[in-house]
Amino acid sequence: MEKNKYKQIVKKYTPKENRLFNGIIAFLVGGLMGVIGQLLLEMYAYFLDIPTTEAGTFMIITLIAIGALFTCFGFFDKMVNFCKAGLLIPITGFAHAMMSAALEYKREGLVTGIGANMFKLAGTVIIFGVASAYVFGLIRLIIFGG
């Protein structure tokens, strides 16, 4: 059989993913994450009496801690699997990626296991995050003058 003809058969029997439903869930959960982040930020700023820039760092650390802790408890993967980009795109996704890799390789030693593999998934985010920050920073500098 021709490869193209076969690809058509495969396409015929491959189920469609529920993109709209997934999108709505991710939109709602992602929005909720934003609300939670904002609440945390306001709370830190109000109760600790610190500027919002500093409260922002506190908020990010809190969300990372929650993401990492929930991953270790073993139920966050099921939440992420359902909410998809709603939990993966916020900072919780980053914490989840690092923590799950660390858990996976803990039996292979501190250096050769956790150290070497913790950034297996999250490393990509850092590399391209930093690289795109440079690119967009440069664009901003050229167009808006900084």
Partner: peptide, 17 residues
């Protein structure tokens, strides 16, 4: 899962197939 895909505790979405 560990060898071929993602860490087991990573909940990345998977297609129906």
């Amino acid at each position: 899962e560990k060898q071929f895909r993602y860490p087991v505790e990573y909940g990345g979405p998977k297609p129906k197939t």
